[in-house]
Amino acid sequence: MRPERSFQGLILALQTFWAEQGCAILQPYDMEVGAGTFHPATTLRALGPRPWRAAYVQPSRRPKDGRYGENPNRLQHYYQFQVILKPNPPNLQELYLASLEAIGVDSTLHDIRFVEDDWESPTLGAWGLGWECWCDGMEVSQFTYFQQVAGFECAPVAGELTYGLERLAMYVQGVENVYDLNFNGLDGAERVTYGDVFLQAEQEYSRHNFEHADTDMLFRQFRDAEAACKSYLAAGDRGERHEMALPAYDQCIKASHVFNLLDARGVISVTERQSYILRVRDLARSCGAAWRKTEGGGVAPAAVQDAA
């Protein structure tokens, strides 16, 4: 299971490395999201004063990036490895570089660079400063110090690392086409490639995303998710506390993904686009505000128990 031998070996090496740094190794969130940041373990946990360290793989869907399996670098479904450390430790850059060593990137051989890239998510009302991390001219990770999430200041600031797993794996395996990646590390008949696992899915979902996704249904789903989010937020509101921030946030995630699908289908005009983004951001803001009134968001447990 050496990281340079297999895709899964790479994931396991990163998990082991970050587990040793005290991260809770979580599993992917069980909903369609555009990036690992949407996982409540990042978005919501970045809010409030409580320390938090977690790492997980997150399948990420970008319907517009589908290329019917014909592009060696672009996928509508891919994996991110996400690390969140709150507050960020002072040596986060060194930890990141050590994680690259752990997956076989030797910093005496390779040119590793931190190139300015300020991160902003209009739909999450979030921004941070940081870099894209380059290895020999290729962007392999995003490194961000969260400053604001859901419109709220992050106090303390969380450090977020996002590894593009396919790209990194292609690099360490020396492969030019993502579908040629060795997935399971075996050879001959037992070898499973990334293409064996995902090529058909890329073809089918590209058709779906660009040609057949039911737009009437999606418009309906967007409205439904938006309405549900608001009604759960209202139902869970207990003044000083909130009791349903997480279910409400699920609906926000859903609305965001449905919007991405509609966008890929090309049925949202430029002017409407902005208004949809603002609608999702409003949901994210409200969910963030609700989360801050929960135990996870920093409200003392006693207060929650008292009220219960």
Binding site: P72, L109, H110, D111, D136, G137, M138, E176
Partner: peptide, 28 residues
Amino acid sequence: LVSNIEASDGGAAIVAGNERVVRARLSD
């Protein structure tokens, strides 16, 4: 390309990596 290190292999890996990215970008 301008690298930030004097690599122990004289830069062979760095050049190979950059060439790979340039190839992918030019393919696009």
